[in-house]
Amino acid sequence: MSNPTTPDPGPVPAADAATDAQGMTVVARTQAQMVRRRFFRHRAAMGGLIALVLIVLLAFSSIGFASVPGWWDKDYFSIATVENGGRPTLSVVPTWLGGSGMHLGEHPFGQDNVGKDYFALTMRGVQQSLTIAFIVGLVGTVIGTLIGATAGYFRGRIEAVLMRFTDVMITIPLLVVAAVLGRRYGDSGIVVLGLVIGLVTWTGLARLVRGEFLSLREKEFVEAARAAGTSARRIIVKHMLPNIVGVIIVAATLAIAAAILLEAALSFLGFGVQDPDTSLGKLISTYQTAFSTRPWLFWFPGVFIIAIALSVNFIGDGLRDAFDPRQNRVRD
């Protein structure tokens, strides 16, 4: 609170009392608190977060995962007799509105042509798509951050090599390289598929992180740490990364949203998840021709893809607003 132009501040007796006497309402908030506050105020992001949590809970609790059983009594692979043309039994219009009441019925999302329960199948698709997207986002973010941080911090030859490599990888369109990799690893299971796609989706983030690092390394606190003999690893991890954690989190979130759509596209083209497993993109691909006869086979997985991608995008937007200090200004 003392005036910085004072050569020798001396005792400043009344400073604290003066601040109190003004009755000023300056609430001290930490950076993290500010971010959290801004995020929770972002209505679209909160909506997205709630929707995503509900979808994840629904998908993983209903049919269970790994060996954990779920509450839904059917599975996604058993063949059964097709009832009522496989029409969905889900009803959401209450009787007093002239509907048939709110109930799930035997097959809420209907059945496919061999009688598999389409609700279970869709939930399985959601699980697989989410898992792949999450792995892709995680792997891509970690690699991108590592490469970008290393290049930005060390500069010189290391930077040249890493960034030229990034340039090379960026030249190959993502969908193309993902399709080629998917062609090879699609039947090795979703974890492998997620990993290999993650291996090629880091380029954008690497450039971003490098740019941030280039400007950060010129800052005084980094100079100070270096002058104090702190190791490079420690400077990067302890001093620099925390400063761009916002950028990374936002990029990671948006990468997951993009990965959802990428996986869907790959599976649609036939280079993604392979039989007997399924994913949302694969369901749409399989049943696109059935649209005019059994549209529900097309609608349900599509609505889930859009709901997931939209939620994640909104969360990413909310995070960006929350981390971006410029948003804190007076609205003008």
Binding site: A257, A264, A265, I284, S292
Partner: peptide, 25 residues
């Protein structure tokens, strides 16, 4: 803003199927 978010959350092949059904057939 909302439409923009909706649009880039749409899988193009899914939109394409809808377009074929309603925009053409």
């Amino acid at each position: 803003t909302f439409s923009a978010f909706l649009f880039f959350s749409l899988p193009i092949f899914w939109v394409a199927v809808l377009l074929k059904e309603y925009g053409a057939i």
